[in-house]
Design a protein around this nucleic acid. Sequence first.
DNA 1: TTGTCCATGTAACCAGTTACATGATTAC
DNA 2: GTAATCATGTAACTGGTTACATGGACAA
Lengths: 179, 179
Amino acid sequence: MSSIRYALLTLLAREPLSGYDIKLQMNGRLGPFWKVGSNQVYPELSKMEAEGLVKLQGVEQLTYRPAKKLYEITPSGRDVLVQWTLEPAGVENVRDDFLLKAFNSWLIEPDQMKAQVEAIRKQHEERLAEYTAKIAELTPRVDPSNPHDPLASTISVVDFGVRYERLYLDWCDHLLKNV
Amino acid sequence: MSSIRYALLTLLAREPLSGYDIKLQMNGRLGPFWKVGSNQVYPELSKMEAEGLVKLQGVEQLTYRPAKKLYEITPSGRDVLVQWTLEPAGVENVRDDFLLKAFNSWLIEPDQMKAQVEAIRKQHEERLAEYTAKIAELTPRVDPSNPHDPLASTISVVDFGVRYERLYLDWCDHLLKNV
DNA sequence: TTGTCCATGTAACCAGTTACATGATTAC
DNA sequence: GTAATCATGTAACTGGTTACATGGACAA
């Protein structure tokens, strides 16, 4: 897995953002993505600024509020991002505690397992609803004549999320039948 | 995400293993799981031994080879594992570099993206074949009369893997159509 | 002779989480 | 008066990756 560096550049390639904005976009649910903490975002932005991948576009100061530092991507930052995007990717392992718990289901009673599956199923149902709503919101705003519309890329990724949540629900149903 | 501690106990609950065996089982592909390095396994086993979750069952010494330390789970280790398995789980984020690259697809040419998708698709196809073979191998060995057969739990998890790889392939095909 | 397998382990480093700190403002 | 939001940042800790070290056996 690569550093969060590319995740930051990915968002900045679309629009100028502050560290705080980046945190919101990542920890909110624009796609089934990363989480980041402030301790990663702010130092990384400073580093990238020093390396010229990003530059301070301006500071928004609303008197009573802390100053907001808006960063924009530089041409060289964009190059680095494009370069990375073109590098071949590898398969990532799924790391999900619930899979490990399911692997241990033989240790517990079927009723207990059933309760566990139902609990996780509910949470994934909620995510599915969020992703579906997001797709419904974005789809009419895509410009189909533009092969470089970022929204189309966003939808592809959220679509992955929808498919993933559906798979999770199907799998849960399958477990419930066999338990 | 929880510590590898539970991953180690999960494997030891089924059979006594050495640190090396654990590494092989995890980094090989019994399920779509964790990877671990020796630097995590050996110290963690020592810690767990000190806490009485695990104990040294014996040492296998084949003259010319390094001594192999076999650990087995203790009743208290089993308790801890069962307790953890019964704790409610949360939804885990999918963290896959390729999703981030797909999110950047608007930055590159459709042809370049097509090549990227085809490359990752191939790798996921291979994984699917592995998982399918694993299921075919395990299924006839399950004891259906035993509701606590660990093999059934293993199959459930590998089945998740199969479904996941199918989803990935479908999604790739969908991308290839729209690019 | 170069490399891989066996089996243990250590060292150095990078990534990620949780918690804390500031300080004004708004909402309950 | 308590908590949340905005926006920056630091500190301490845990988790994870990569590389290295030993040393005999065996295969290309």
